[in-house]
Amino acid sequence: MNKANQCPECGRINEVLGRVGDRWSVLIVISLAQYGTLRFNELKRHLGISQRMLSLTLRALERDGLVNRTYHPTIPPKVEYSLTPLGQSFRKPVEVMGLWALENLGAIDKARAAYDAEVAVEDA
């Protein structure tokens, strides 16, 4: 396929899906949708994510307009995160993906086991 026949917006779609479709972004959006406003350490504990990865992901979600960061100049400082209206609009598709994953864990585990067994026989 030459460049003239390529999807003119596919590059931009890929860019957006790459950002908002990674597992940490999805889990952060699900958490904020479920619990509302959360502090950084609450998200960190809830997700079991490293501080660095959480910081990078939140920064990217904030840049994309999905997450709102609110800084409270208290001692110690308090930073809270919540979904923006754009983030709320992303809530439904993310919840559907999350529910699909939960509903299909058993089937995925079976498929992986069958694949691994087949590959082990081929490699033997």
Rank of each mutant, 00 (worst) to 15 (best):
N2E: 11
K3Y: 14
Q6P: 00
C7V: 01
P8L: 12
P8N: 05
E9G: 03
E9L: 05
G11A: 10
R12T: 11
R12N: 07
I13K: 03
N14Y: 10
N14L: 14
E15Q: 13
E15C: 03
L17M: 15
G18K: 06
G18M: 10
G18P: 05
G18C: 07
D22C: 13
R23M: 12
W24P: 08
L27F: 02
I28C: 08
I30Q: 14
I30A: 12
S31A: 15
L32P: 08
Q34C: 12
Y35H: 14
G36L: 07
G36K: 11
L38E: 12
K44P: 13
R45Y: 03
R45N: 14
H46S: 13
G48F: 08
I49N: 00
S50I: 05
R52V: 05
M53I: 12
S55Y: 03
S55G: 15
L58G: 08
A60S: 14
L61C: 13
D64A: 08
D64S: 11
G65Y: 02
V67Q: 04
N68K: 14
N68Y: 15
R69L: 12
R69M: 15
H72M: 15
H72V: 11
P73W: 07
T74K: 01
I75K: 12
I75A: 12
P77S: 03
P77C: 05
V79D: 09
V79T: 13
E80Y: 06
E80N: 12
Y81S: 03
Y81V: 01
L83P: 06
L86V: 00
G87S: 11
G87W: 11
Q88K: 09
Q88L: 08
Q88T: 04
S89C: 05
F90R: 04
